[in-house]
Design a protein around this nucleic acid. Structure first.
Length: 155
DNA sequence: GCCAACGTTGGC
DNA sequence: GCCAACGTTGGC
């Protein structure tokens, strides 16, 4: 069982949207970055836990927790010319992009702000703080522990 | 809206 | 394979 952080713009899909989707969860699709794709395709597995990060919004930071309920499968949007995630170079025989399904588990009682994460020496090595522009990234079990403690959540 | 930091593309 | 030009992410 591994830990991850997924970024999302809450205007697009927020922790509340995930909660509204219930146990069926939502496909985490539209990832079009190779490094993120490789994590999704090769490493993210059913049962893994996911921190939900809200980006490009008023309250940037960690909003809650989800669980992977379906491991990697081919992202169908890449074949749909009407989708903004369409990729003309992807074929059924040779798909480029993958997604997973996740379901809501927990919403933090407050957003743990990016600034707060930056202030924590224990979190200095978080991928989030060291590398920009990566929307799917690993989280260590130690970092997970620090963060859930900050959130006042045991999960 | 600005802009820094990165990723991708494409000419050579 | 290098690297300049360009596009995107994402905090502020």
């Amino acid at each position: 069982m591994n830990f991850w952080l997924f970024k999302t713009e809450p205007d697009d899909c927020s922790i509340d949207d995930l909660a509204a989707a219930g146990g069926t969860g939502l496909p985490w699709d539209g990832i079009r970055n190779y490094q993120a794709r490789n994590f999704l395709r090769d490493e993210v597995q059913e049962g893994d836990r996911v921190l939900i990060y809200h980006s490009s919004c008023a309250q940037v930071g960690l909003a809650g927790i989800a669980r992977v309920i379906r491991g990697s499968y081919v992202d169908p949007d890449q074949f749909d010319p009407n989708s903004s995630y369409y990729d003309s170079k992807a074929t059924a025989d040779n798909p480029r992009w993958y997604c997973v399904d996740i379901a809501f588990t927990h919403k933090f009682s407050r957003v743990i702000r990016l600034a707060e994460l930056k202030n924590r020496p224990e979190l200095a090595s978080m991928v989030l703080l060291r590398q920009g522009r990566l929307s799917v990234q690993p989280v260590s079990s130690q970092e997970w522990g620090v963060i859930t403690k900050l959130a006042g959540t045991v999960s």
